[in-house]
Amino acid sequence: MTASGGTLLEDRYGTRPRKTSRRTYWILGACAVLLGGVIAWVGYVNLGTAPIETQQVSFENLPNDAMRFTFEVTRDTPERAAVCIVRTRGLNGSEGGRKEVLIPPGPKAVRVTTVIESGDEPVTADVFGCSYQVPAYLSTDLPPSG
């Protein structure tokens, strides 16, 4: 079979398939294993257990749009101080009040009770988040002012 120019198709495209070396397969396999390891590490860092875990224990409405909120904090490094941001929510789900609570170094699991002032009548309270990055104004290491 010839093409319009008179050249055989086999001459133009060749008949032998290219041969892939074993070295190429080893390099591709190593890259796949490395990529899988990176994906697993990123997943562990982002989806692994949190260093500070909280659990809501109770909340109670108080007069003047305030709420007493009790929660439990479990830390992986209990010798470090932590800060938790707690908040109240109104009937429509909006945030009514917010407060930072210092969790001093101590036992691994600690129960904390605080009162949160709210702008409107609160119906629930929750922990917004916790961190080991305690702001200086919450630190107990500072001398008293005033």
Rank of each mutant, 00 (worst) to 15 (best):
E121V: 13
Q133T: 11
S94I: 13
S21E: 14
T7E: 09
R12A: 14
G43D: 08
R89I: 09
T77V: 12
T70R: 14
D76F: 08
P107R: 12
Q133F: 12
R87I: 08
T20K: 09
A125I: 00
G96C: 04
L35C: 03
G36M: 04
N92D: 15
L9F: 09
K19P: 04
T7P: 01
S4L: 15
A66L: 10
S118P: 08
R89W: 11
A50R: 14
E79K: 13
L142A: 12
A109C: 03
D11R: 08
G129P: 09
M1E: 13
W26V: 09
A81P: 13
F69P: 12
T15M: 13
T70S: 14
A82K: 01
P51K: 05
Q55I: 10
L9H: 04
A30G: 09
T113H: 01
R89M: 08
D126C: 12
I85S: 14
G43F: 04
G5Q: 03
Q133P: 04
R98Q: 14
T2V: 15
T77E: 11
I103Y: 10
Q55K: 05
P144F: 07
T124G: 12
L35V: 03
V86I: 01
I52S: 01
D65Y: 07
A82C: 02
R22K: 06
L28F: 09
M67Q: 05
S145C: 05
W41R: 01
A125V: 02
Q55S: 00
L91A: 15
P78T: 04
V123P: 06
T49H: 03
R23M: 10
W26D: 07
A30R: 00
T24Q: 02
R98A: 03
